[in-house]
């Protein structure tokens, strides 16, 4: 049964449907980031399953990598915690598959670096991710110039390749990126690695306005948002606000030096996500 059902769900394009719904509700979305299997496979699945009901509108799952060059300390450490469990792409996809058994509307986006995907095989990855119920992929170190070998397979499997744009992306550069983009556009609000600086509201406002002159795709803003207040302020100027490092920091706080876990860890993470959602949801007038 599941293959046919999932195929139909895929054709519905969860990402487009979700942004359409947000528009209808007249509010920006909250995009949450957690690394797969951080801090353990069990707690990660609790967090993942709980996300939609506390207000995560789209979910990014990080594929852990040994050398996350565009990430700050918080996400570097989360990758290391996940890799302690020997987390591979197959494990990430299995978690998505399990999530999809109960939740079919919330888009899932995998975010990571190219080497694990390349090693898995771009075509196999696209096929298996589609079957698992993944909707889009962000590959931090795969600019449009190099992305063709993955994009072709993602498209063949009805998935979106989501590209990053940055404060350094000029008006000449943006068309090069946006020509290949689909799903939504991710605006990196700081020149820096994840979680190390605070997005400047006015700069984001101008940048998103500039992006909108180049694309009709929804714009999500991330890399420098830590609190419900910031999420609300940034959310006012875009279609979705992304929070990663601040969530991951709460996971880190729940892991003792001896590796012992706070038993209320997933509850605390989900409470924080709820507060972020409350902030974001009131962002539009």
């Amino acid at each position: 049964m599941s293959a046919a059902v999932k195929f139909d769900a895929r054709m519905d394009d969860r990402i487009a449907a979700r942004f359409a719904l947000l528009k209808k509700k007249n509010r920006p979305g909250l995009v949450t980031f957690v690394t797969a299997n951080d801090p353990t496979p069990e707690v990660f699945r609790e967090i993942l399953e709980g996300m939609p009901s506390v207000g995560a509108d789209l979910i990014e799952i990080g594929i852990p990598f040994s050398d996350p060059m565009a990430d700050g300390p918080a996400i570097q450490l989360s990758s290391q915690r996940a890799l302690k469990h020997k987390t591979k792409i197959a494990d990430v996809l299995a978690a998505v598959k399990a999530f999809r058994e109960t939740e079919i509307d919330t888009p899932i986006i995998l975010m990571g670096y190219y080497n694990p995907i390349y090693h898995y095989g771009a075509q196999e990855f696209a096929q298996d991710a589609a079957v698992a119920g993944v909707d889009g992929v962000i590959v931090v170190d795969l600019p449009p110039e190099e992305a063709g070998e993955l994009t072709v397979h993602l498209r063949a499997n009805n998935m979106h390749m989501i590209f990053l744009t940055a404060p350094t992306s000029s008006d000449q550069r943006l068309p090069v990126i946006l020509k290949e983009a689909s799903g939504f556009v991710y605006y990196v609000s700081i020149t820096g690695v994840t979680g190390t600086a605070t997005a400047d509201e006015n700069a984001v406002k101008d940048a998103v306005a500039r992006l909108r002159r180049h694309t009709g795709l929804p714009v999500a803003v991330g890399f420098g948002i830590r609190t419900p207040e910031q999420a609300r302020a940034i959310g006012a100027h875009c279609d979705a606000a992304v929070v990663g490092s601040a969530i991951v920091d709460i996971i880190a706080q729940g892991v003792g030096k001896d590796g012992a876990l706070d038993r209320r860890l997933s509850v605390k993470v989900l409470e924080f996500v709820k507060s972020l959602a409350t902030g974001v949801h009131g962002a539009w007038p």
């Binding site: 060059m69 565009a70 190219y114 931090v140 170190d141 795969l142 600019p143 110039e145 190099e146 590209f163 990053l164 744009t165 940055a166 404060p167 350094t168 992306s169 000029s170 550069r173 990126i177 990196v188 020149t191």
Partner: peptide, 10 residues
């Protein structure tokens, strides 16, 4: 090739 984050591409 050029496998870098978009911030660095320009």
């Amino acid at each position: 090739g050029r496998y870098v984050a978009e911030t660095l591409m320009p």
